[in-house]
Write a protein that binds this DNA or RNA. Structure first.
Lengths: 230, 230
DNA sequence: CGCGGCTTTGATGTTCATCAAGTAAAGTGG
DNA sequence: CCACTTTACTTGATGAACATCAAAGCCGCG
């Protein structure tokens, strides 16, 4: 974790229009006085499940995974980029985090004292509505993604995840996989070996180029096919 | 669907303390003027995904399933009893329902114009906080249940569901299964045949008594074992 | 430079879906 | 109320999909 930088002007924050549209200027100043920014290098744990919830936070830049540390195995719940909240599942309600969050890429998060958020909900109806919207959107995405993974077989799931990174995360057919093969499996409930096997198969079939973490999708339409019918 | 009954006094509603604690009496009257009650017999569809969202609603009595009508197969997202919201996933945000809801048992729901709810969020901070709490609790439950199903193999999943009905829904070792074997499978991603096979196995092993939909759990500790390690 | 974690491939066996076929139950129309 | 149709349930047989085990190479890091 890198030392906190103190930027106390949200006026030009990328996320302001998204999140604080309905907040009065003086309230925004209130937030700014209580906000902090933290940066984490890839691989580092940002939140450990069980920790007390003191802050509401969202991702300013980078990529993180939200996951459950189980006794049997770890399970990835969501892979979230900027504009996705990561502490969303129950920050307002719970006393402790239910899930862990780790940085998949170097990430910067913005923290706001949870009491400030609660106060804002109380005083600003517009903010409350906006927050509810964001919370439900985020949860919806988790449920939806899960349903889509559930209905596919392994080949379909691998294709789905590859297209997820290609289209939703990086917007390119060429990208670096931010997760290990093991994490890949933890995301779609499949053994590490089979993730590798199917990736290798796709390489042999000239659908992908793979050099370690580097991926190039040569035939996205083939992956679409797999994702749609597999 | 049975004709709406117009009960316009929430004062003694079971759900009032749960939901309307933070609402002023005059606001509560406002809600009452805009609320309706509807009853559905078991088996009937309450909400069809795609329909426009006009009302916020929760379950007063009965049991329902929240499910996704897919092209490949139906998937049950949640089985909800009273005190669980069912239109929760994104009522505030979306224009149309994303998922369908059916009555598993005769059910009564209470409907409130969504605009009234939104207005309440705006004017009452306490209500807003309370609503957020309920929404996140409900979503949390979906995510948590899903993780627990995901980490188990078929035998463990069947045991998990049996214990779910026994403990969380009916509070008894003897109960009528409210879902078909097919729905059982749609809840835990398994073929109907295998649901039956494992149930039959449990019957042969004297862990269960089964007569059609009637279930008696003879050895819950055995199911715990299966659920914990399977 | 050696250790541990990540990756890869092959071999093996289990788990699970699918197919097929038959029975029971429940709803439908005459 | 009974024949008829449909839907739910059940069992067995088969093969495909998938996890697990084993072994070896690779890479990064202290």
């Amino acid at each position: 974790m890198i030392e906190p930088t103190s930027i106390c002007d949200c006026t030009f924050c990328d996320l302001k229009p998204l999140f604080f549209d309905h907040v009065e200027d003086r309230e925004l100043r209130d937030i700014c006085q209580n906000k902090r920014e933290l940066s984490y290098p890839a691989g580092e744990v940002i939140i450990r499940q069980g920790e007390e919830i003191r802050d509401f936070f969202y991702l300013k830049s980078g990529l993180v995974k939200l996951y459950n540390r189980g006794t049997r195995k770890d399970q990835i719940i969501k892979i979230a980029g900027p504009f996705d909240f990561v502490s969303m599942i129950s920050v307002i309600t719970d006393k402790n985090f239910r899930y862990s969050v780790s940085a998949l890429e170097d990430s910067t998060i913005c923290l706001i004292d949870i009491r400030v958020i609660k106060k804002l909900v109380r005083v600003s109806g517009g903010f409350a509505l906006h927050l509810i919207e964001k919370l439900t959107d985020s949860n919806n995405d988790i449920v939806r993604t899960n349903l889509e993974i559930r209905e596919r077989n392994l080949r379909g799931r691998v294709a789905y995840v590859l297209l997820f990174f290609s289209r939703k995360v990086y917007g390119s057919n060429v990208f670096e996989m931010p997760i290990t093969r093991k994490e890949f499996g933890e995301f779609i409930d499949m053994s590490t070996e089979n993730v590798i096997r199917i990736l290798s198969e796709l390489r042999k079939d000239k659908v992908l180029k793979i050099f370690g973490k580097s991926i190039e999708i040569l035939h996205p339409e083939h992956l679409d096919q797999l994702s749609a019918h597999g």
